[in-house]
Nucleic acid binder design. Structure first.
Length: 528
RNA sequence: GCGCCCGUAGCUCAAUUGGAUAGAGCAACGGACUUCGGAUCCGUAGGUUGUAGGUUCGACUCCUGUCGGGCGCACCA
């Protein structure tokens, strides 16, 4: 809709302009402050310029009215245009708000270490990533979702060691001395139990089996993580193993050295990341020849760029922000355009329940387990709240809010609006096919506004995706639901003269609610 | 100490990325047809956008300082 409007205006004015939605719908459906910028060039008052512009659109069929106010030019769409658009959307729900474009994107998110279950901090990045993925696909991007498995470092050894020691203590019942660093939490004991059943208790006999326990435990944890994600409706296209890439280190390392941005000092190899905004240079190869953690990310990003996407998006926890500069520097040194990588940071989350801090899971070693919260409030509610706030704000919320069955619970409120639409159709005894060709005309202001708002979904999706701010979509859905409830309260539908028109209007609202919810991973409820 | 993020109604958050009178929900108070589902709706009240300057036709938004909170400052991952 917006695209069509922009094109129409551009054809007439032949210059770029800002098109926005007026704060107050009574001004019109779209507005532009272009007269203010022209005022300077033309040395005329913005008001006069705005009036001149209006005249150019007097007989344009897509506008009902174009008027000027205080220098703004306001556009009101014609009913014909809105009606035609709604008819199309209702008949082609699966195509509504879809688009095609020629850009490939690699979207990486979650990528939690396979050393334990997912905790609540992971969930925010997970649902943001999954929703951007769904929206991006819908908008026609060639977008790929990917999870990077850190399965090559010391932490995997520690996982194996922890299982080994837990097995000795709890199964072989021998005394063990725990090191400073190991994975705590009862899940380790459960893993030891399972290992003993699957591999035999002999695996705990001596340290030679730690490696076996490491890789066995890692596989178990990947399974667990996948199942945690599935509970939130999330599936990845790709899982990329750090370990499997490791034999490519030589290639990446040679590329780095060619850049002239590496040097050897104190027997270690460094990259000059401070040349590109990092706080200091970083070691990539230690004195003993082992590569550092950063090397893993260098190989991985080398691998990503070799796959030649137009754009790369990483979603990281905010506690990793210090890492951005060095990874981007490394990408640059590898000879790639590091500006093609954008990092979205997901800020910390603090959960409350009944006003108290949410209970930590002993099982997980004093983290809030993601699966606990999903079981508690449900996937839909969790997704909705995490998507309702900008990713870079510190989020705090009380899960009890999602047990309320009233308007204080946004996901309930939206579902109720959707269910209401079905209810009205059921009462009327009419089907969508019967009313889709009714012409929407002579609408009241409220009806016209509701129709217009329902048709905004495509541009809301664009805006959400381009700014990586999914809360624009959740805000929109709340707003659309509110308008529907309001309209419903003020207008009877069934048995009234406007019945068929309003049914069509409701059908359109239903389309936008369903499609919008599905793109944040929520299935709209047919009845409550 | 340095760097990044955040600071908007009592609370949780929005604000078309520099545009019109800063908006919702919750909490408080007052209302609505014996209901196409009152699981909803309407109204009242609530603000010097942390603070002090600056940039311009216009600033919650950009710049500088400052205060408060979070996170990070590995040859760990």
């Amino acid at each position: 809709m917006k695209k069509r409007v922009i094109k129409t205006i551009f054809d007439e004015l032949q210059r770029d302009f800002v098109l926005e939605k007026p704060k107050d719908l009574s001004f019109g459906h779209y507005a532009t402050p272009i007269a203010f910028s022209l005022a300077k060039e033309l040395k005329q008052s913005p008001m006069l310029i705005a009036e001149e512009i209006c005249k150019k659109f007097e007989n344009n069929p897509i506008f009902k009215e174009v008027s000027s106010l205080k220098g703004y030019v306001n556009f009101r769409l014609s009913e014909d245009f809105l009606n035609e658009y709604a008819t199309y959307a209702i008949k082609n729900e699966n195509e509504f708000a879809k688009d095609t474009r020629d850009e490939s994107i690699l979207l990486e998110y979650v990528s939690a270490n396979p050393t334990g279950p997912l905790h609540i901090g992971h969930a925010r990045g997970a649902v943001i990533g999954d929703s951007l993925y769904r929206i991006g696909k819908h908008l026609g991007y060639d977008i790929t979702s990917e999870y990077y498995i850190n399965d090559a470092g010391n932490q995997i050894y520690l996982l194996g060691l922890s299982i080994y020691l837990a097995g000795r203590e709890n199964i072989l019942h021998v005394e063990v001395t725990w090191p400073d660093e190991f994975y705590r939490g009862e899940y380790i004991v459960d893993l030891a139990q399972e290992a003993s059943e699957e591999l035999g208790s002999d695996v705990f006999k001596d340290e030679s089996n730690i490696e076996l326990l490491s890789s066995w435990g890692k596989e178990k944890m990947i399974e667990l993580i996948k199942s945690n994600l599935a509970d939130l409706g999330i599936e990845f296209e790709n899982f990329v193993s750090e370990k499997s890439l490791y034999d490519k280190w030589e290639d990446s390392f040679i590329k780095l050295q060619k850049s002239d941005k590496t040097y050897v000092k104190d027997g270690k190899t460094w990259i000059r990341s401070s040349d590109l905004g990092d706080e200091k240079d970083r070691v990539v190869v230690r004195e003993d020849g082992r590569a550092t953690y950063l090397a893993g990310d260098i190989i991985y990003h080398d691998n990503k760029y070799q796959r030649n996407f137009d754009r790369y998006i990483n979603i990281w926890g905010a506690d990793h922000h210090g890492y951005i500069a060095r990874v981007k520097a490394a990408i640059n040194f590898l000879g790639y355009d590091e500006t093609k990588l954008e990092v979205i940071l997901a800020q910390m989350v603090s959960l409350l329940k009944g006003g108290e801090p949410y209970k930590m899971s002993k099982r997980a070693g004093n983290f809030i387990l993601m699966s606990d919260v999903v079981n508690d409030v449900g996937s839909d509610a969790l997704r909705f709240v995490f998507l309702s706030k900008k990713s870079d704000t510190h989020l705090e919320f009380d899960v009890d809010m999602f047990k309320q069955e009233d308007s204080s619970n946004p996901i309930f409120y939206i579902n109720y609006a959707h269910a209401r639409i079905n209810q009205v159709f059921a009462k009327s005894g009419k089907t969508i096919d019967e009313i889709v060709h009714v012409k929407l005309e002579n609408l009241s202001e409220e009806a016209a506004n509701l129709l217009y708002t329902a048709l905004l979904l495509p541009e809301v999706l664009e805006d959400s995706f381009h700014s990586y701010q999914v809360q624009k979509l959740t805000e929109y859905l709340k707003n659309l639901a509110a308008l529907l409830h309001k309209f419903y309260n003020e207008n009877r539908v069934v048995g009234e003269v406007n019945e068929e028109k309003y049914l069509k209007l409701f059908a359109m609202v239903g389309v936008s609610l369903r499609v919008g919810l599905s793109l944040i991973g929520i299935k709209a409820k047919e009845k409550m």
